[in-house]
C-alpha cells in the first residue's frame, strides 16, 4: 500500500509568496513586458497548485474514521458486508 506523500504545505505556500514577490519586482521596470506576464502566470500556476493541495488535504482530513478505515479495514468499527 503506497501513500502519496503530500508536499509540506509550507513549501508550496512559501513558493506562492516568493513568486508574488518576484512578479512584483519583474513588473516594476516594465509592466507590459513578456517577463512581467510570465511572472504573474507563474503566480497563477503556483496558487492553483497550492489550492489543489489544500483541497486534497481537506478531503483526506475530513472524516477521521474513513481515513482510519482505509488502513484498517478489518477492525470492528470498519468492517462492512455487502449482505
Amino acid at each position: 500500500h503506497v501513500r502519496t506523500m503530500a508536499v509540506p504545505e509550507s513549501t508550496i505556500s512559501d513558493q506562492v509568496a516568493k513568486s508574488i514577490k518576484d512578479a512584483q519586482e519583474a513588473c516594476a521596470d516594465d509592466p507590459v513586458s513578456g517577463e512581467c506576464a510570465a511572472a504573474w502566470d507563474e503566480v497563477e500556476e503556483v496558487s492553483a497548485a497550492a489550492s489543489d493541495e489544500r483541497l486534497k488535504k481537506k478531503q483526506t482530513d475530513s472524516d477521521p474514521l474513513e481515513t482510519y478505515c482505509k488502513d484498517n479495514p478489518e477492525t470492528d468499527e470498519c468492517r462492512t458486508y455487502e449482505d
Partner: peptide, 27 residues
C-alpha cells in the same frame, strides 16, 4: 472565484490577484 481561492494564501492580496488576472489577459 480567485479571491475565494487565494485570499487565505500567504502573500496574496486583492492587488496581487487583480495583477495576475490583468497580466495574463492579453494572452
Amino acid at each position: 472565484w480567485k479571491i475565494q481561492r487565494d485570499m487565505a494564501e500567504r502573500g496574496h492580496s486583492l492587488e496581487s490577484i487583480k495583477a495576475s488576472i490583468e497580466a495574463r489577459k492579453p494572452d
